[in-house]
């Protein structure tokens, strides 16, 4: 798929290229060039199908990575476009006008990561969470453990031991 990348690179200012398999590669794209690139891929390069749109939270680095995975059915290959957007006030232009299914992904990302897609259909409606008011749960600073402890009971009779304390008890109870 490297030739495709080389071709695209003549048309768009692309970032890093990573080939995961012969039929699956990823390219990093500056935010403002995503839309023209998608249109090009869809209309001229055979990538007619949007497989999925998902996100990764790079908390320490302060950005979200959006991945747009496209499929070229005829050539049986997938290309993922990666876009980095600032985590603060995360907002991204929607692509629901290019692929209507994108609206569903965008609604999910809005709910789970708190990334806004202004103008995307029903983007602010609840998706799978009901009555959620806290931090979007897929953000890495969301404390999953705390949430599960607060919301799900433990069956009675559970008990755990700390390895280091247990070893002291068993191996050197009398020492300092």
């Amino acid at each position: 798929m490297r030739e495709l990348y080389e071709q695209l690179k003549r048309l768009f200012p692309l970032g890093e290229y990573a080939e995961q398999r012969r039929d699956l590669s990823f390219v990093t794209v500056p935010q403002e060039h995503l839309r023209p690139l998608l249109i090009h891929l869809r209309d001229r390069a055979g990538f007619t199908h949007l497989v999925l749109l998902t996100a990764v939270d790079w908390l320490e680095e302060g950005f979200f990575q959006l991945t747009y995975l496209l499929n070229d059915r005829a050539a049986k290959r997938d290309l993922g476009l990666r876009v980095l957007i600032p985590r603060d006030g995360a907002t991204m232009e929607g692509i629901h006008d290019l692929w209507p299914t994108a609206a569903t992904y965008q609604r999910e990302l809005r709910e789970m990561f708190g990334i806004d897609f202004p103008g995307s259909p029903r983007v602010n409606e609840e998706f799978i969470l009901e009555g959620w008011t806290g931090m979007p749960p897929y953000r890495r600073d969301f404390d999953t453990k705390k949430f599960s402890e607060e919301n799900f009971n433990h069956r009675p009779g559970r008990a755990t031991k700390d390895p280091a304390k247990h070893m002291k008890e068993k191996l050197y109870p009398d020492e300092a």
């Binding site: 453990k145 599960s148 755990t160 247990h166 191996l171």
Partner: peptide
């Protein structure tokens, strides 16, 4: 993240160097 695991003593496995038992 679900607090599903407890560390428990097991018959026949005792604490020793490098193994809490």
């Amino acid at each position: 993240q679900n607090g599903a695991i407890d560390m428990v003593p097991v018959d026949g496995i005792s604490a020793k160097d490098g193994d809490s038992g």
